[in-house]
Amino acid sequence: MVNAAGKFGPYNPPVPARPASGAPVLDARVLPGRGQTGAELVRSRIALRVRLCSVAPGDRLPDAGVLAEELGIGEITVRRALEGMCQDGLLDRRRGRTGGTFVARGWDTVVALLHDADEAASLGAFHLLLECGLVAHGAGELPPGALDGLQALVDETALAGDPARLRELETRFHLDLAETLGGAGMRELTADLLGRLCLVRAAPDPGTVRELNRCHADLLAELHGGALDGAVRAVKAHRHAPAASG
Score class of each variant (00 low, 15 high):
G185S: 05
R94W: 14
T208G: 06
N12E: 01
L31W: 03
D192A: 00
A17E: 08
A191I: 00
A221D: 15
A39G: 12
V200E: 01
G99L: 10
P143Y: 07
M186F: 04
G161Q: 06
N12S: 00
R45Y: 07
R239N: 07
A68E: 09
L26T: 10
H137R: 11
Y11I: 03
R93M: 15
E222N: 06
E83Q: 14
L113Q: 15
V30Q: 12
D176P: 00
L52S: 12
L71G: 00
G89K: 11
T157C: 13
D92A: 13
A184Q: 05
A68Q: 03
C198K: 04
E179V: 00
A39V: 06
E188F: 00
L61I: 06
A231D: 06
A184C: 02
D88H: 14
G133V: 05
G96V: 03
V110G: 14
R79I: 03
A158R: 14
V200A: 01
D116K: 11
A164R: 09
Q36G: 07
A17S: 04
L52R: 12
P14K: 09
R97E: 10
S21N: 08
G246R: 06
A81E: 02
L52N: 14
E75F: 04
V103K: 09
E168V: 10
L219H: 11
G100Q: 08
A17T: 02
L67Q: 03
L129V: 09
P10V: 00
C198G: 10
